[in-house]
């Protein structure tokens, strides 16, 4: 055990510190996911609109999100805004801004996909029953859309958790950073700590994301009808 550096993990509060580090990125992703889902629902409805300006704007927005790596967006928000506008955003706030920017596009696109997959007859029947536009959305379309959306949004959660590991690059102390600190602190006594620590981080991410994506897969299959 000594040679693989697993002993370091059980020294003092090291394991607890790793978990706390993991919680930092999970917390950022949970906050971002909640905001993204709420705003994404609105964005998705707007994306189905026939308005040319609105359509073009969303097209550009989606393309930016599709092409730009999240890391670049993080750099722009964290380093760029300070320089250009003199804002002093803290790292965690910039991370949330970037992941919401990304998440709203993803979620909006999912909502749009779910909305257009709803047969036209549903809208027509609602109209025939004398429902207003708001009523149609609220009582007919949304309930059906939500069912299709839940597995997809759960998937978004795991992708969000995986992507938030990038916040290391803008100086947030998350699980990898804590891992590095532990390795540095124990360089003398256990030079192989890197193996144990990073293997455990690898495993921790898997243990968080795997059950969640299994749940999404299960729901998707169950509600496929």
């Amino acid at each position: 055990m000594q040679s693989l550096g697993l002993d370091v993990l059980f020294k003092g509060t090291n394991f607890l510190r790793l978990l706390e580090g993991l919680w930092v990125s999970v917390r950022i992703s949970l906050i971002s996911v909640v905001i993204s889902i709420l705003l994404g629902l609105v964005a998705g409805v707007l994306m189905t609109s026939k308005n040319i300006v609105l359509k073009a704007a969303f097209r550009v927005y989606l393309e930016i999100v599709r092409i730009m790596p999240q890391m670049v967006l993080l750099f722009i928000v964290y380093f760029g805004t300070t320089r250009v506008f003199g804002w002093n955003l803290d790292a965690e706030a910039s991370a949330v801004i970037v992941f919401v920017f990304w998440g709203v596009a993803e979620m909006g696109d999912l909502v749009r996909g779910a909305l257009i997959s709803i047969p036209k007859i549903q809208y027509e029947s609602a109209e025939a029953l004398g429902l207003t536009k708001q009523q149609t959305y609220l009582y007919v379309i949304l309930p059906q859309t939500v069912r299709r959306l839940i597995p997809l949004s759960i998937n978004l959660v795991t992708r969000m958790i995986k992507t938030t590991s990038l916040v290391l690059m803008i100086g947030i102390v998350e699980v990898l950073k804590v891992g590095q600190q532990i390795i540095e602190a124990n360089r003398r006594t256990s030079p192989n700590a890197a193996f144990g620590v990073f293997a455990v981080v690898f495993l921790l991410y898997f243990l968080i994301c795997w059950p969640v994506s299994r749940l999404a897969g299960y729901l998707e299959k169950r509600w496929a009808a």
Partner: peptide, 23 residues
């Protein structure tokens, strides 16, 4: 497939680059 789909590339790279040399 499950392992690599459910972990971030950053963590995978750290494992390959910093942990594997130790073995």
């Amino acid at each position: 497939i499950e392992l690599f789909r459910n972990t971030p590339l950053l963590v995978q790279l750290f494992f390959i680059y910093f942990a594997l040399p130790k073995v």
